[in-house]
Amino acid sequence: MALCNYYRKRKLMDNLVGWWIRLMVFLVVALPLFITASLLSKSWLILGHISLPELLFSSVWRPLAGEFGFWPFIISSLWVTFIGLSLTAPVCLLSAIFLTYYGSRRLLGFMQPIIDILAGIPSVIYGVWGILVIVPAVGKYLAPMLGYESPGFSIMAGGIVLSVMLIPFVLNILIEIFRTVQHDLLDASLSLGASKWQTIKHVVLRKSFAGMISAFGLGLSRAFGETIAVLMVVGNVVGVPENLFQPGYPLPALIANNYGEMLSIPMFDSALMFAALLLMVVVVVFNMISRRTIIYLESRQ
């Protein structure tokens, strides 16, 4: 009798836990859908008034006149992200190779907490550092050296600050990926007479190619959405920048700078929500593309 009771209790517990888990999983799945839906519903107004191509590709941004062209913001975001990632990529790749295959284990042990600290620094501090160091460096040295004039606050400054912020993030993932390459595989290559670099080039990099794509894909999503630090150094001037040493105005900065203000202007609120939706869509698409690439590459190996 007592045993029967025990079994009934156990069954009940099983069911309860099962439903609890299902609820939590549902929440996790529903949340992004819910966010997308609310962004979509808010930007519905502007989508009804202005056609999508015009919203995306027009460069005219005159909220008071009811003209909302997002091209300046989109192009600024793309440039900042591109510069950030292309400066980060070689640094991270080479340091990750060095730390996993050339440096001593002690060096890696010493570096790992430093990388973690870098990753933990609040982005506003990177922004302040950018204003103090990068902005003058770009304005006074880098731009004149390359024959441009620049106020310092520019796409380039945003990209450089962003690249520094991405380093710990991407580097950590790359180190993890390189460490998972089995030792047997390295031994096999070396025993065939390959040098260390040949082994890294032909075996390690090839074996971790899918992982590298995902690391950079994650970096890309993060770079595209990074707000505060970029906002502080990028200049925030509306307009398609003539060159990379001119100020720009990326999408996240647009939202952060303007939301809650000027809401009396018709459709302005809706326009900002559209910017947020755009940001969300781009990041999701980036993620999906890199995921597909990884699956494809892994099936090729």
Binding site: Q182, D187, A188, S191, L192, H202, V203, R206
Partner: peptide, 16 residues
């Protein structure tokens, strides 16, 4: 090392 071929416990096909 080229004078000695190595065959390890588990096969180690290179990723190619």
């Amino acid at each position: 090392r080229q004078k000695m071929g190595l065959l390890s416990q588990r096969p180690t096909p290179l990723p190619m």
